[in-house]
């Protein structure tokens, strides 16, 4: 019989961690289902753009995606915006307690009411702040035009720092930084480096203030109608490619940060403990400000899982 074709569309280049993980998933899935499925990976928004892929998935026009977690707020599952909260996760261990534990699974279930089947969380990494001046204390952000992706949480985060958030598509960011339309931005190091943004930013600070991650999702009806054995094969492939994705994401981000330092084009600053404390303090109000939106219970369950104490 002809293999079942799964179109897997994403919006980044094939050589990024997510792009590589998608290719890895393709290989593993085709292998584990013994050719019962054929995965067609469409990178770089060749099939659907950032703004339309979710609707396309809901309609069944594409079967699998790996959008950034920030995309689920507009879908109506605002609980996912918890991942954008500044300084909620201290490190990958904290994070994986959530994404690979019950909370993560619970959030994925919420997607089902939207016709979406959540399958796995893939890391990108923790973000650094960059601009054309040193960013040490919250005061340094005052009045800066900071590029963010569309997100109410990130907007609140930048406002809490006194910056002027500018929502701008990722594709326009390099040019905007280069010409000075915006002063700075926040990115995991791998994005900063692969987009060459470090060439047009003088300073970067390893604040690790926020997390950027993706969820692998499928059209729910499509997924549930797959033969049992095929789904088992795909689940295995997902599990292995998730480990792969998270591992290379970490590697690539570490490598990228070293490469940025080595380039000499951006001065990379690692803040002291006190400076981090000051940032945490400035950004703490964002948690309360966003509690109504995201859901107090979700935020608190994350606090509990990671042992985070908001009063500190």
């Amino acid at each position: 019989a002809d293999p079942i074709v799964i179109k897997f569309s994403h919006v980044v280049a094939p050589d990024t961690p997510k792009g590589k993980a998608a290719e890895k998933f393709k290989t593993l899935a085709e292998e584990k289902t013994k050719g019962a499925v054929k995965i067609e990976v469409y990178p770089n928004s060749t099939l659907y753009k950032d703004k339309e892929e979710m609707e396309a998935l809901q309609m069944g026009a594409v079967q699998m995606l790996a959008p950034s977690l920030a995309k689920f707020g507009p879908l109506g599952v605002k609980e996912f915006e918890v991942f954008d909260l500044p300084y909620l996760f201290r490190n990958y261990d904290d994070l994986h307690k959530v994404t690979q534990g019950d909370i993560g699974a619970g959030l994925m279930t919420k997607l089902e009411t939207k016709g979406v089947k959540g399958l796995a969380y893939w890391d990108n990494g923790f973000k650094v702040m960059s601009a054309n001046k040193p960013l040490k204390t919250p005061d340094d952000y005052k009045g800066l035009k900071m590029r963010i992706q569309s997100s109410k949480v990130l907007e609140a985060e930048m406002r809490a720092l006194g910056a002027n958030p500018q929502v701008m598509p990722f594709s326009e960011t390099y040019q905007a930084l280069q010409t000075g339309v915006v002063d700075g931005t926040e990115n995991p190091p791998s994005n900063l480096f692969t987009q060459k943004m470090h060439e047009v930013q003088k300073n970067a600070t390893v604040t690790n203030h926020g997390y950027l991650g993706y969820a692998v999702i499928a059209n729910k009806d499509f997924w549930e109608k797959l033969p049992e054995d095929v789904r088992t094969g795909l689940d295995e492939a997902l599990k292995e490619s998730t480990d792969f994705a998270n591992q290379i994401a970490k590697e690539e981000n570490d490598k990228a940060l070293e490469a940025v330092k080595a380039s000499g084009k951006t001065e990379v600053y690692t803040p002291t403990e006190d400076e981090i404390k000051a940032m945490q303090k400035a950004l703490a109000p964002v948690h309360t400000e966003m509690a109504d939106r995201i859901g107090k219970d979700v935020i608190e369950s994350v606090y509990k899982a990671t042992g985070f104490d908001p009063s500190k």
């Binding site: 074709v5 753009k49 703004k51 339309e52 609707e55 396309a56 309609m59 069944g60 026009a61 598509p169 326009e172």
Partner: peptide
């Protein structure tokens, strides 16, 4: 086998770009 609804979607999102 592209669902036909994708057409209507593209008719909106096709120009949904600030550039």
């Amino acid at each position: 086998s592209v669902p036909i609804e994708a057409v209507a979607l593209k008719l909106f999102t096709g120009i949904e770009k600030f550039e």
